[in-house]
């Protein structure tokens, strides 16, 4: 049976995801929850953009499948979170009202795209294009 993804992809995603998750946990021990979410999600998006952009640069880095599994699927995926954001939206809506809750959620999603694109540009030297 041919595994897709191969076993070493699973191992690298496990190690990267473990590292990213612990780092997110430690950030959460220092900062309050909304700030933690902003920091990990925006930094994580910029980082993934940088990894993906760098892999397409003239002098590519992170171009191997192995580094994508570890740094992309593993580390960036484990460091960032959508579930924490969904819960924070529900809790913020309960305490501050739906307007501020929705503002936090939608603004973070929108800024996530901007941070990803900016990281990509930093890595490749050009904005994402077709």
């Amino acid at each position: 049976m041919k595994l897709n993804p191969p076993p070493r992809a699973l191992l690298l995603a496990f190690l990267g995801g473990a590292l990213g998750s612990v780092l997110r946990f430690l950030v959460g021990e220092v900062l309050d929850t909304p700030t933690t979410l902003l920091v990990v999600n925006l930094l994580g998006s910029a980082f993934l953009g940088w990894v993906n952009g760098s892999s397409q640069a003239d002098k590519p880095r992170f171009a191997s499948a192995e580094s994508k599994w570890f740094w992309g699927a593993g580390f960036a995926g484990g460091f960032t979170t959508m579930s924490g954001l969904a819960l924070a939206f529900v809790l913020l809506t309960g305490s501050l009202g739906v307007t501020l809750g929705a503002l936090f959620l939608v603004a973070q999603l929108a800024f996530g795209l901007v941070f990803y694109a900016s990281g990509f540009r930093a890595g490749k030297g050009a904005w994402p294009s077709v």
Partner: peptide, 28 residues
């Protein structure tokens, strides 16, 4: 903490969502 911060935090992702959404938009 293990289930929410660990398992769910690892299972969910914001960065891949940003990457996929942005590339979909850029690709028209």
């Amino acid at each position: 903490t293990l289930l929410a911060t660990g398992l769910a935090g690892g299972l969910s992702t914001f960065s891949s969502w940003a990457a996929q959404t942005l590339h979909l938009m850029v690709n028209r």
